[in-house]
Design a protein around this nucleic acid. Structure first.
Length: 369
DNA sequence: AATGCGGGGAT
DNA sequence: ATCCCAGCATT
């Protein structure tokens, strides 16, 4: 076995690294896209989105030139939509300010929207070979065990300590591979519960293992359960059977995405008054005069911090709606391929307007038989 | 320093 | 049910 931690880890990585789409080249733009998609997202989830993204936006300038609507459409279903908006804005800044070349300077790169300490370290170490740490959730767990850091990892101080440890460990030679190896080790061997220390290439250096703490580290206070929030949505048809969609506000949950017009029902609204409250919401938020009828579909959607208990009410349009950038009508056929966030696509499915979507998220195939 | 922000897979 | 994922911006 190699006699230093970094050599042992790199040897392990060389023998078992996965063949991932973003590991086939070192184009900084492509590495960057992968790192943003992978923020809080599993590798297997991101891959189909990544491939489709690069087909449409093969280089930085093609993304910089694209309209935001198309960018969000390609991201839809992946979640955390500000990632897409920030990446789009950042790429435009690189195009205009840096001549289309991703800056090598860590401070300049990290100043771009959506680029934090992790993403800067990952992109610059992988694409440019800079000796920078990149500590994601997986690497954090490895580092906490390696150094037997006993503090609560939800605290900033403990995370900083882990980053300092990583900065000490990352070698001049192959820093990008080292960072990826640390992450991959956390994802496959140094897993949250019951780590497979027998398969670990750096167990000889692991302080938690030496002290018998590998099963209890990292320590973390648990999050409170997400509250359930009722959501009232309107399923409004126009004279020709099309369905009304509203663009959500630019800030907040699902910001800027399209969905059924909807609002979160507060505790002050009794169950019997929801329909009337929905009518008021449609009037105030969209200038629509609608008579809200009976509920036609229900669905539950779990976010990380709240759960929507969704009810869709049928709505009869009393008066022609105003045209505008925040409102559009789609036929059920158009709805089927439309980039809706999952919460709304599920609700529309429950209403029987479109067939249930196929398992693969990104390829919204039209009619596969 | 804590919170908001998606969606899904593993246990 | 709970945890957690190649995190970042905002407060």
């Amino acid at each position: 076995m190699a006699d230093t931690l970094d050599r042992a880890l790199l040897e392990w990585y060389d023998s078992r690294r996965r063949d991932l789409p973003w590991r086939r080249q070192r184009d900084p733009y492509r590495i960057w896209v992968s790192e943003v998609m992978l923020q809080q997202t599993r590798v297997e989830t991101a891959i189909p989105y990544y491939l489709r993204w690069l087909e449409r936006f093969p280089d930085l300038l093609s993304l910089a030139r694209a309209p935001e609507e198309e960018v969000l459409a390609l991201w839809s279903g992946l979640g955390y939509y500000s990632r897409a908006r920030n990446l789009h804005a950042a790429v435009r800044e690189v195009a205009s300010r840096y001549g289309g070349e991703v800056p090598r300077d860590p401070d300049a790169f990290a100043a771009l929207p959506g680029v934090g300490e992790y993403t800067a370290g990952a992109v610059l170490s992988i694409a440019y070979g800079l000796r920078l740490p990149a500590v994601d959730g997986n690497a954090l767990r490895v580092l906490v065990r390696l150094g037997a850091l006993e503090g609560d990892i939800t605290r900033t101080a403990v995370r900083r300590e882990a980053v300092r440890l990583a900065a000490r460990l990352v070698p001049e030679d192959r820093p990008g591979d080292f960072n990826q190896a640390l992450m991959e080790l956390g994802g496959s061997v140094c897993v949250p519960r019951r780590p497979r220390c027998g398969d670990c290439p750096i167990t000889a250096w692991c302080e938690a293992r030496r002290r018998g703490l590998e099963g209890v580290l990292p320590r973390r206070t648990r999050r409170p359960a997400a509250p359930a929030v009722p959501l009232a949505a309107a399923l409004i048809r126009d004279g020709s059977g099309r369905v009304g969609l509203a663009r959500r506000p630019a800030v907040g949950l699902l910001a800027g995405m399209w969905g059924l017009p909807a609002f979160e029902v507060g505790a002050e609204t009794p169950a019997g008054a929801v329909a009337a409250a929905l009518e008021r919401h449609l009037e105030e938020a969209h200038g629509l005069r609608v008579r809200v009828g009976p509920p036609v579909a229900r669905a539950r959607h779990v976010f990380s911090h709240r759960t929507w208990e969704m009810t869709a009410f049928a709505g009869d349009l009393l008066e022609a709606p105003p045209e505008g950038p925040g409102w559009r009508w789609l036929t059920p056929g158009e709805l089927e391929g439309f980039p809706l966030p999952r919460a709304f696509s599920r609700l529309v499915e429950a209403a029987g307007l479109v067939p249930a979507a196929p398992a693969g998220r990104p390829e919204r195939r039209r009619s596969t038989r």
